[in-house]
Design a binder for these strands. Structure first.
Lengths: 154, 154
DNA sequence: TTTGATGCAAAGACTTTGCATGCTT
DNA sequence: AAGCATGCAAAGTCTTTGCATCAAA
């Protein structure tokens, strides 16, 4: 559904970037646009190829550097994967990921389901962990690893 | 406490390896011994250096290949990290990790605390996720990201 | 005008592979 | 004896960096 929605080449990013002290360049606009437009957690190379195909010229080094800048600014998030190349994600609110063991693909758990999961964790369990470990928990990363069920339709 | 416990150079690994269809070589024994003996989730290079220091000669390529063999056999687990190099873990039962944002170091959450956390998640929330996503959840990876509290002792 | 961003190529970090040799089974 | 493991070096992948040029503020 959201698979091939067109990338708006110039969303209202000026303000967003300004807020985060990022210069608003063409490359940053199209890169962030592409990252926002997908929920497939692309790798740097995915994004590079996607933008090249769309004639939005950008160099691979800039893709890497810019994604890194987005992450520092809190506009994106890097997801480490077992397969070597990092994947990126424009939405930064706490959410869960599912990872398909077969393909390595990472996807988001829909907000409401994720919230239900997080809300189910009793606060005192978190506090117990924090005090026992002497650790401030700032973020909970949860990944559901498994595989999609076979499609049973004939 | 378990920081510097001596690595038993020849634990009873013959059987373990046999069960998992792994040849029992000197390199595999010392490598698995070293991995078992620590809870610091070492990188391949950590292990290589540690063993080299102990005169347990092994090549870096063999460390990589052998860790990969352990993972395939289910005797170890590879943890992807944001910083590039993978970390390894000999214990494979479901457990939680904490990651220090400052140092990048990953550590285990003690079994009992982890269990308390996992047990706090209602089964029906999991089932809800599975049916909504049409996905079989085989493993739950949870990482508590944050930082250790400053030591207040004077 | 100043400062930071971009692009290119080169370097760097981490990991895997090809192949000859050696050790386990 | 057969077959997998090892070690080395080379190749591969992914990412970062140096530096000259260019664009945003």
């Amino acid at each position: 559904m959201s698979e091939h929605q067109p990338v708006n080449p110039e969303p209202d990013l000026r303000e967003l970037f300004a807020t985060h002290h990022l210069r608003c360049t063409r490359q940053r606009r199209v890169l962030y646009g592409a990252l926002m437009a997908t929920d497939s957690h692309p790798t740097a190379d995915h994004l590079f190829q996607e933008l090249s195909r769309r004639d939005h010229s950008i160099s691979l080094a800039t893709v890497y550097n810019t994604l890194e800048a987005f992450c520092r600014a809190g506009l994106a998030q890097r997801i480490a994967t077992p397969s070597g190349s990092a994947r990126y994600d424009a939405s930064v609110h706490n959410h869960l990921h599912i990872r398909d063991e077969n393909s390595g693909v990472v996807a988001d758990v829909p907000e409401d389901l994720g919230k239900r999961f997080l809300d189910a964790i009793p606060r005192e369990v978190i506090q117990q962990l924090e005090s026992h470990l002497d650790f401030d928990i700032r973020e909970l990363k949860v990944e559901l690893v498994g595989r999609y069920r076979p499609d049973m339709r004939q």
